[in-house]
């Protein structure tokens, strides 16, 4: 089965019913995408399938055939510089244990691609599928706004 992963064509031999998550992790060694619940409830396994966020633990490989998958390993720019969301995640000191953060960043990236200037309410809605047991929701919200350039405090700081 052929699919494009992080811009590279990959050939995978696996049962088409296998969730994308396990092919990424066990066959391609892309361990940044995490297993959390197996039933699309926690968002730790979020990747982009043709640009849309999907829960890879519950999406079979058969649905990805011929399509393009982007994982956390693939969202930095080509020269390896961090994505603006990743930078904001560092500046706002978002992660604690860090286990959910690949999924959080992938959901946030899909949100900003769809809506470059989301309101707090829109952020909450888009991110409600991603659980963070360390409870860093406030910092995630802030980091998304910093990345989107809509954080008022930050803008004031920059201006002064």
């Amino acid at each position: 089965m052929k699919l494009t992963i992080n811009g590279k064509m990959q050939e995978i031999t696996a049962d088409p019913a296998t969730p994308i998550l396990w092919a990424l992790r066990e066959q391609l060694g892309l361990n940044g995408t995490k297993f959390g619940c197996g039933i699309a409830q926690c968002g730790a396994c979020t990747v982009h399938l043709d640009g849309r966020p999907v829960r890879s633990c519950s999406t079979p490989l058969s649905q990805a055939e011929g399509k393009s998958i982007v994982t956390i390993e693939g969202i930095a720019s080509g020269d390896g510089a961090l994505n603006r969301l990743q930078q904001a995640w560092i500046s706002e000191q978002v992660p604690q244990c860090g286990y959910c953060q690949s999924g959080q960043i992938m959901s946030a990236a899909a949100l900003l691609a769809d809506n470059p200037r989301p309101s707090d309410e829109q952020i909450n809605i888009a991110m409600a599928g991603n659980i963070c047991r360390c409870g860093m929701y406030g910092r995630i919200r802030k980091a998304i706004k910093v990345a989107a350039g809509i954080d008022s405090e930050r803008q004031q700081e920059a201006a002064t």
Binding site: L30, N31, G32, T33, T71, I72, E73, A76, L82, Q86, W89, I90, Q93, V94, P95, G98, Q101, S102, I105
Partner: peptide, 8 residues
Amino acid sequence: DIPAKVDG
């Protein structure tokens, strides 16, 4: 430990 937790 944070940089390694934002790039997988």
